[in-house]
Design a protein around this nucleic acid. Sequence first.
DNA 1: AAACATTCCTGCACGC
DNA 2: TGCGTGCAGGAATGTT
Length: 271
Amino acid sequence: MPELPEVEVVCRGLNEIIPDKSTIQNIHFYRKNLRGLLPEQLVKDVIGQKMISIYRRAKYIFFELEDYFIVSHLGMSGSWRQGRRDRLHDHIEMVFSENLVITYNDPRRFGIFEILGRKEFKNDQRWKLLGPEPLSEDFTADYLWRHSRKKTTAVKTFIMDQRVVVGVGNIYAAEALFHAHVSPFVQAGKLKISDCEALVQAIRKVLAKAINKGGSSIHSFVSSNGRSGTFQNQHFVYGRAGEKCKICQKMIKVKVVSGRSSFWCVNCQKR
DNA sequence: AAACATTCCTGCACGC
DNA sequence: TGCGTGCAGGAATGTT
């Protein structure tokens, strides 16, 4: 489900649901073994804390509290919605006041939920490894070109590497490469600066459009407001193996790269 | 019933 | 030979 656009949509939804300065009244766990550390003490400490802001970095959602941070990563199948726990795979309830409750649902349980003190959060190595936000000014063709030198891995794997640029997963990597006319299998180190320019533009455009469409709803993605995204209707290659390319009418193909299905148009993606 | 949107870890292969 | 690095593959799991 969630790559950058979906996480962004969920995050915006949470901001609509939870008013500024809401106070955490309680957190209920209905499943112990989610990923991420959850010392009992921290769960207690966080009660009574005011919510300062809820924001996204890469595919993570950060709930910033007065003295703590709650980190939520949706993994493959996680989602937040308003309302109490009332369905299968609802694992966490965060209670703000009696009628303001958000619930975390995650069938595959690859998601992360953890609470960190401000200091621990700040020093956490995970954030230090993250590359630039693709929609920020730091993500440039020059940056991409420099970082790809000598890399022998396929460009698709390269742009999905969160140390290179964050937020690009299997769907949007495929879509961006299509729009940039770059084959997913080219070695990253062989990209020309012009390819990097096309790629940066394409990644930006695809992600921004997807956010505007509420994300891609494949199988079951719905935002926190319960709305489905519609960007899947605008996929040019992802999930379209055997169908005609919307540009040249040739057959879209699929091949596994680094263990992930990669969809591309042989004719439109020559570089 | 095979495939799967994510991340992390292991182990292999290569080069100095 | 030994070490470090880069890369591929697998595992975690439930659903369709």
